[in-house]
Design a protein around this nucleic acid. Structure first.
Length: 899
RNA sequence: GGGCGGUUAGCUCAGUUGGUUAGAGCGUCUGCUUGACGUGCAGAAGGUCACAGGUUCGAAUCCUGUACCGCCCACCA
């Protein structure tokens, strides 16, 4: 695509991507001597579609990878997808149901359903892949991984087996978060709370009054708990009561004293339902109370509920309340706001139930880390506390510690079929209702044990269990991983990629999955590999719509779709919009206008490049050397380039990507386009061979600095300019001390200010922008530089006659308009200056300057400042004051002469 | 209830370890359209940095408190 009128992203993005990929630019070489820089791509749901969360993630990950790649690192970005257990299984089940199948699980059976889900994933996985490509992600597709592929499954099984051996995984009866809708348990992190209006019942309960919002659960009570020092109930502690409900059943409750009970809440007496409440379960364990399950996995009442058996929870509540009321046992019914727990996935209420499940013990000191036996919790804490892992933004570390402090054992087993199956086999087991109860033999390992009669545990593992291994399981050699004779350590020893690229450099993901994923990766990876998974965690914010709400398809009027945006504005504009003005952990309000603004920058770069190309057409290339660059303007440009390179590098190192991009943008637009490119249009400069070289060199470097943020545009321009190779593989700009003229650059900076001053004076004097003016410029120093820039000043300030004095400043013309700077005095002569405007302008300047001078002087008279401030700061203040003083005196003099 | 943030120009946000006159984009106003620019350029207006104390020679920046906004966690007695 030649340099058309504007950059047409549609015509080139796909081709450029293919070129990159085919050239091997994305491929990391495990054998190079370069320092490694690795990012594991957070695996998107294999069956998902691209949303704004992906867009910001890929934009940030890709810019880091491209930057490090250009900087000379062996940059590896491992892509992949996640099997997203619950999400995927429920999608497929819903589809089958839509096709008319009533109960896919029972009709198809386990094997068939799993195979259908696998097929569905294979079919739909290509869509997310191509969408990530559309963003321009320069990841190494030859190393793509999938959480459910055999090699990763092997890693999962081996880690499970090892944790089991170390006693870090155990099977236990606990109150779990049961989702009756999905028919599975979910972890503590997969539930959320929502307030809803509900009834609060206070009922007679033997000698007590007990409050509850779930009366039906009281059918399963086995105790009443009171605070041990509560005078009202003290005498009852230790006693046992039979409570006969109006229509049955009769329950036996013991009265226990427990400090967890708050005497101020409700009646001070708490009906303990061990089977259906986490807290009650803990109380029950402490006091060795029995447990009666009255609600089953379908959300219906069990036989233990007597006459209510078979009813749903809500039916039972209604009936039971009516019965209590009829019997006069209902003391009062109030309306209140009840927080209920819901499942993240199904958004349906969670039913706490007792169930035998697999857990990871986070408190057992069974991990050997840095020579000490520690618990998983301790290791997780120490790697962040010690700075081995850094979280960005930093304050997320506090959130992280807070989470660890409240962490309980992690329930990892799920009752769905799609996922990594628990690698445990039983022989001689009693299986009831899909649950394995007692087994004569249990075997845990990465493969099925020899011999007949072994039955595998029916449960699958929490998706996050396998994702937690992601940074290293993706680097394990697939061949080695499938060798059943090797153990985990041996597999990793034989995995060149793991040896070379792990720990990864940066984990980039959204802050809302800090607990789900980041924390679990730290937990699992330190344990299984003895290494941290990554050095730095960069957490990006959420993308909000223009109203500040999370972007959602249910609000189409404010929702911006990344794919539509790529189509309309291009991937570069979208990526830039994700990065500019954003920093780690900051939510991003995104409206169409920002994307449009980004598109304008893209177009600006396109057109500036076009201009540079035209200027250099038919001109010979000149090698840039210190001696070869003679014109101060060119020296200034190269010096500014150096300053920018240094600044950008510092910003990039500090993970301040938005800031870095902004620096490049403002320097490019303001210094390069608006000043330099305009200036070199004057013949005196454009005819110099060095000018072409400087313009090209500077443009090239801007393109490189822009490349991580706008890969497609910069690659296309690079090609159009016929630069060697591809920009994706070009060297990141470095500060070039040979091409640096700080002194002269300062003088040119004064020229820049002079031009701006003239422009400003013209407006104030109401001079037509088109009409030339006569200008006298009196430099305080470096007159030769001003002289060299004569043509530039003439053009940019539109002067007809320009007098540059080189010595004694004369008295300015009565009819002139005058401006003063530390480096010059300029006077604009006019047939009739608007003296009033002139006076006003000067007076205003004088006032501002005096204020500043005053503050400088008061500081310089302050012994505290002189004694405490660094010498440099004091010196700078002195110099500023002196310069300012001189300038102000001149302005004053001019004012006086105006009368 | 516990924790973590935020409050800077009309809007969206930067502001590096405290150090001149607090910045940008968008929007607004006034001109121009000069040889790359689906536009661009030039110039301008606009801020008591939420509030109150404190530390300091010096505070948007550090500390304490207050108000408002947001998020996370806990809570189904």
């Amino acid at each position: 695509m030649p340099f058309t009128k504007y950059f047409e992203h549609r015509q080139c993005e796909k081709d450029i991507y293919r070129l990159w990929e085919e050239s091997g630019a994305f491929r990391a070489n495990a054998d190079s001597g370069r320092p490694p820089f690795t990012i594991s791509m957070p695996p998107p749901n294999a069956t998902g579609t691209l949303h704004m969360g992906h867009a910001i993630g890929k934009a940030v990950e890709d810019l880091m990878i491209r930057w490090r790649r250009m900087s000379g690192d062996e940059a590896l970005w491992v892509p992949g997808t996640d099997h997203a257990a619950i999400a995927t299984e429920s999608v497929v089940i819903r589809r089958l149901q839509a096709e008319g199948m009533k109960d896919p699980r029972s009709e198809l059976g386990r094997e068939e359903l799993v195979s259908r889900i696998a097929d569905f994933v294979t079919e739909s996985r290509s869509s997310i892949r191509s969408q990530i490509r559309a963003l321009g992600a320069s990841c190494d597709w030859t190393r793509e991984r999938y959480t459910m592929e055999p090699a990763l499954n092997r890693c999962v099984n081996s880690v499970f087996a090892r944790m089991f051996r170390d006693g870090l995984i155990y099977r236990g009866m606990r109150i779990v978060n049961w989702d009756p809708a999905l028919q599975t348990t979910v972890s503590d992190d997969e539930i959320y709370y929502k307030d809803r209006q509900a009834e609060f019942y206070t009922m007679r309960y033997g000698p007590f009054l007990v409050g509850t919002s779930r009366p039906e659960s009281k059918l399963g009570d086995t105790a009443v708990a009171v605070h041990p020092e509560d005078e009202r109930w003290r005498e009852h502690i230790g006693k046992t009561y039979e409570v006969a409900w109006p229509k049955g059943p009769t329950i036996t409750v013991r009265v226990v004293g427990d400090r967890h009970v708050d005497p101020e809440t409700g009646t001070g007496a708490l009906g303990v339902t061990p089977a259906h409440s986490q807290i009650d379960f803990e109380i029950a364990q402490q006091h060795h109370l029995p447990l009666i399950q009255v609600i089953d996995e379908q959300g219906r009442m069990t036989k233990a509920a007597g006459p209510y058996a078979g009813m749903t929870v809500l039916q039972c509540r209604k009936a039971f309340v009516a019965d209590l009321q009829e019997a006069g046992l209902m003391e009062k019914v109030e309306s209140y706001v009840q927080p209920i727990s819901l499942c993240y996935r199904s958004k349906q209420p969670i039913e706490p139930l007792p169930k035998k499940q697999w857990f990871i013990d986070v408190n057992k000191p069974a991990v050997l880390w840095e020579g000490k036996r520690q618990s998983l919790r301790q290791v997780m804490r120490s790697v962040v506390e010690s700075g081995q892992i850094r979280l960005l933004p930093e304050h997320e570390e506090k959130t992280y510690f807070h989470w660890i402090d409240n962490l309980r054992d992690w329930c990892i087993s799920r009752q769905i079929w799609w996922g990594h199956r628990v690698p445990v086999w039983y022989r001689g087991a009693k299986v009831s209702d899909g649950n394995v109860d007692q087994a004569e033999e249990t075997y845990v390992g990465h493969r099925k044990p020899e011999g007949p009669g072994w039955v595998q545990d029916p449960d699958t593992l929490d998706t996050w269990f396998s994702s937690a291994l992601w940074t290293w399981s993706t680097l394990a050699d697939p061949q080695a991983a499938l060798d059943e004779e090797l153990d985990l350590d041996q597999i990793l020893e034989r995995s060149p990629d793991f040896q070379r690229f792990h720990p990864t450099a940066v984990m980039e993901t959204a802050y809302d999955i800090l607990f789900f994923w980041v924390a679990r990766m730290i937990l699992m990876t330190t344990y299984s590999t003895g290494q941290i998974p990554f050095h730095t965690v960069y957490l990006h914010g959420l993308i909000l719509d223009r109203d500040g709400e999370k972007m959602s398809k249910s609000k189409p009027e404010t929702c911006i779709d990344p794919l539509d945006t790529i189509e309309e504005y291009g991937a570069d504009a979208l990526r830039l919009a994700m990065v500019l003005g954003n920093s780690a952990g900051t939510d991003l309000k995104l409206g169409q206008d920002k994307i449009v603004a980004c598109k304008r920058l893209i177009n600006k770069i396109w057109n500036a490049s076009k201009l540079v190309e035209r200027t250099s057409e038919g001109r010979q290339d000149v090698e840039l050397s210190r001696e070869g660059v003679g014109h101060p303007l060119n020296q200034w440009m190269l010096t500014r380039r150096n300053a920018l390179v240094q600044l950008v590098d510092r910003r990039m190192q500090a993970f301040a990507f938005g800031d870095a991009a902004e620096q490049v943008r403002s320097s490019f637009w303001g210094e390069f386009c608006d000043f330099y490119l305009e200036a070199i249009k004057v013949e005196e400069l454009s005819k110099l061979p060095e000018t072409v070289a400087v313009a090209s060199r500077t443009l090239d470097d801007y393109l490189k600095l822009f490349h991580p943020f706008m890969p497609f545009l910069t690659e296309q321009v690079w090609g159009n300019l016929k630069r060697p190779g591809m920009i994706i593989r070009a060297d990141w700009p470095r500060v070039d001390t040979a091409l640096d003229w700080p002194q002269d650059a300062n003088a040119v900076q004064a020229v820049v200010r002079a031009v701006a001053a003239v422009r400003s004076m013209r407006v104030e004097q109401g001079i037509d922008p088109g009409s030339p003016v006569n200008l006298r410029l009196e430099p305080r120093l470096n007159p030769s530089i001003f002289e060299s820039c004569r043509a530039v000043i003439e053009k940019l300030a539109r002067t007809s006659q320009l007098e540059i004095t080189d010595g004694q400043p004369g008295e300015p013309d009565e009819k002139a308009s005058v401006a003063v700077d530390e480096a010059w005095r300029i006077s604009l002569s006019m047939s009739a200056a608007d003296l009033e405007a002139e006076r006003l302008r000067l007076a205003k300047q004088l006032e501002g300057g005096r204020k500043r001078l005053q503050s400088l002087q008061s500081r310089l008279e302050n012994p505290g400042f002189l004694n405490n401030a660094p010498a440099q700061t004091v010196e700078a203040a002195r110099a500023d004051a002196a310069k300012l003083q001189a300038t102000l005196e001149e302005i004053q003099g001019r004012l006086d002469s105006l009368g």
